[in-house]
Design a protein around this nucleic acid. Sequence first.
DNA 1: ACATTAAATTCGA
DNA 2: TCGAATTTAATGT
Length: 239
Amino acid sequence: MKPVATTAQALQRRARVPTPRELDDIPWLQTLDAQERAVAAADVRVVQVAAGELLCRVGRPATYWFGVIDGLLKMSNDTEMGVPITFTGVPPGGWFGEGTVIKREVYRYNIQALRKSVVAGLDVDTFHWLLERSIPFNHFITQQLNERLGQFIAAREIDRMTDADARVARSLAALFHPVLYPGVGTLLRITQQELGYLVGLSRQRVNEALRALQARDCIRIEYGGVRVIDIHALRGVPR
DNA sequence: ACATTAAATTCGA
DNA sequence: TCGAATTTAATGT
């Protein structure tokens, strides 16, 4: 997967107005009252990104609050020296970057599309407009920040786990988070290769882990995706 | 790495 | 626009 250089300007040029169907898939929009929803919906823009494309880069000023309509993104956090460390996936229904947008700072993550995806963006100014007047929106954001904090703590634990089955189980459980990623439902569309990129394992090893989890009746493997049978069992996979 | 199977796309009516 | 044929993608070993 080769990274494709993408400027914010190029993204803006390719952006279009969301379809009604796409608006329905934006969780926070549904919580707003009619007036505010109308204003916010009018400011949402949507763009297709190709696999490997970089949506935003560390250090660029935050101009949008992003959400995944369709596809799968990877949040990665570079360390000082060059390459590695700490990934989380962002499946459909996930919105991110609110911490950065609230403070009007620069992005602290690289966001890369793991596959061809549809991403929505809300202008920073509209975000602040909502934050200043809408209680439902504030509830949404508070909850979002709170749940994500829990996810980062979980991610640290996952990093330390050596057992591949357990890593896959916990990473999957994170992606099935009902509050952060309501768009996922019980079927997560992710290939074993993509899971491999996220967790840092080979496709073969991910395949093996998934089969073990399926044997435990935690999940069901489907073509191009994974269905959760028992999320609690998934979280509880030991070691 | 390879064989198998599923899905997406093309193409002809 | 239907469906068969072909190509591409994902899975399992």
